[in-house]
Every structure is written in C-alpha cells, then in structure tokens.
Design a protein around this nucleic acid. Structure first.
Length: 265
DNA sequence: AAGCGGCCCAACCGCTCCACG
DNA sequence: ACGTGGAGCGGTTGGGCCGCT
C-alpha cells in the first residue's frame, strides 16, 4: 500500500526561493492566513510543495523573526536549554522570540559546539572532557546517545509531552489594520523585488501583523523610486500577474473548500 | 587575480507525531 | 482500535561566500 507522498514532486520547483516566490507566499498568507499548508502553494500559484512553503515562511518570511547574530546572552541560554532538552531544537527555539529552530540548530552546529570544545566541554553532555578522549567523543557523537537520543530510547524518560508543555501555539491568522492594509493595497501593486525585503517590514503584535511607519516609509520610498525608473519594468512584480489582489478583503478559507475538489484533490 | 579550502546557512529528506474519520 | 494523511521535527546536504595562499 504505502503512504502517498506529501506532495507530488513532479513539476515542482526546488532549491532557493526567488523574490517573486517570496512575495507570492507572503501576499497569500497575509491575505488568507494559514490553514492547510498542502493547498497554500496551489492557491498562491507556487510550484512548490506545502512543506517547502511552510519552511520558507517559518524560517525566513515570518514577520516576527529577529534578524542578525546571536548575542552572548542568547548563546548562554541556548547552552543552558540544550543541557536540559538535548537536540530538541523546536523546544529550545520556543524559549526565544524571533528565533527559529533551524537558526538555533545551525548556530549550535557551527558556533556553539566549537565554543564549548574550546572551553573544554563536551557539546553532547556539557561535561568537561579531557583531551585524551576528545577525538573519541567526537567520533562517537553520531552513535553515542546524547540527551535527545537517550530520551528516545526510554518512553518513561521522554519528558513533558506536548500536552504538558507550557508553550502556546498561536494560530497564524494574520490580520492587518485597515490603515496598513489600505496603504499596502495602494502601494504594493508594484513591489521592487530586488530592493524590498518584505519579511523585515512587518512586526508581529499578538497574532496580528503590523508594519511600522518607518518600515512602511522605507517600502514606500522604494516603490516611489521604482515607479520613476526604468527598473520597474524589468524587475517589479505586479500582483495582478499573480491573480492575487491585495485590495481584496480577507478571503475566508471556507471559500476554498470547493476549490480543493476542482483544483487538485 | 586565481585557486583552494573552510564556514555558514537555506533548504531538503525522512521520520515521527497527532488529529480525525 | 486502527488507518490515513497533514504538520512538525531533527539530521543532513550543497552551494555560495569569504579569507588565505
């Protein structure tokens, strides 16, 4: 029997995301929120699987992401949490606002691990290591159960179940204020793809997205510059081209129910 | 300037979890 | 209780970037 793959890979695009794809995804989620990742790429007009869209949103486009390097305090906190939680990156990430599990995982593997070794600590156990066994410890890391894999082996040691977790899942219904939406609707018709990093423009406030006036003026100035140059003809992204319109009121996902049947399900 | 090697990180893969019928 | 399928997670990879020679 076998399980159906999560997405039909034939004809789907892979690899790095283009600015236009980012804009399409961003635009769609801002208008509609997230209810089912599988149908997001279809409705957003993207040749990507839902999984890829989810990853892109979570790791790059999400408006509440904090950009830039980790502070020493953040690194210390990561080390502390890792000593308690092991390689459960999503759990660790939940203790930071604006940091993704992928980001923390990458930072751990590229920086903190080295830092700990430099301090004479075993990254897997957080215990001091003597130099004579350093190599052995390193070579064993893949098979030696660290905190995470140890936990996996014994069900009773599995730690808090998701239900016990204090972490609250926020539904990603993205609502913009009338004012912001109006401004964006008016001005986002021609986004200068090369110059506007949409992901950095917005801020999460509760479960709403807002755009700061400085960010918006930055966006607006970019738009203005583009409109007055030949650049726009070549590189701008017209929302009409995507069959999406920022001026539309928030589209209820219920309306997509019928589309699911006719389009792809 | 060119070649090389190491580093970094975005993205993918495969697996598990979990909700739902 | 069980099967199914979407979402989420952690490990891994590959390509671009950067510094060194």
């Amino acid at each position: 029997m076998g399980r159906k793959p999560c997405c039909d890979k034939i004809g789907l695009k892979r690899g790095p995301w283009t600015i236009e794809e980012d804009h399409r995804l961003m635009n769609f989620i801002l208008n509609n929120g997230i209810h089912c990742w599988r149908i997001v790429p279809k409705l957003a007009g993207l040749l990507r699987c839902g999984k890829s869209c989810r990853l892109r949103w979570i790791n790059y486009l999400r408006p509440d992401l904090k950009r830039g390097g980790f502070t020493d305090a953040e690194e210390d906190r990561i080390m502390e949490l890792h000593s308690q939680l092991g390689n459960r990156w999503s759990k660790i990430a939940s203790h930071f606002s604006g940091r993704t599990d992928n980001e923390i995982k990458n930072h751990w593997n590229t920086k903190i691990k080295k830092k700990m070794k430099h301090l004479g600590l075993d990254p897997a156990t957080h215990e001091p290591v003597n130099n004579s066994i350093t190599d052995q410890t390193e070579s064993n890391q893949k098979t030696e159960p660290n905190m995470c894999s140890t936990v996996k082996e014994g069900e009773e040691t599995k730690g808090p179940t998701p239900k016990d977790d204090v972490i609250t899942e926020t539904t990603t219904t993205l609502i913009m204020s009338d004012n912001d939406e109006e401004l964006l609707a008016k001005n986002c018709k021609n986004l200068c793809a090369e110059e506007v990093d949409i992901g950095s423009l917005f801020e999460m406030q509760g479960n709403e997205i807002s755009i700061s006036s400085s960010s918006f003026s930055s966006l607006y100035s970019n738009i203005s510059r583009c409109e007055s140059s030949s650049y726009i003809a070549q590189d701008s992204i017209s929302l009409e081209q995507w069959d999406l319109d920022m001026t539309d009121p928030l589209v209820q996902w219920d309306l997509f129910a019928n589309l699911e049947d006719t389009l792809f399900l």
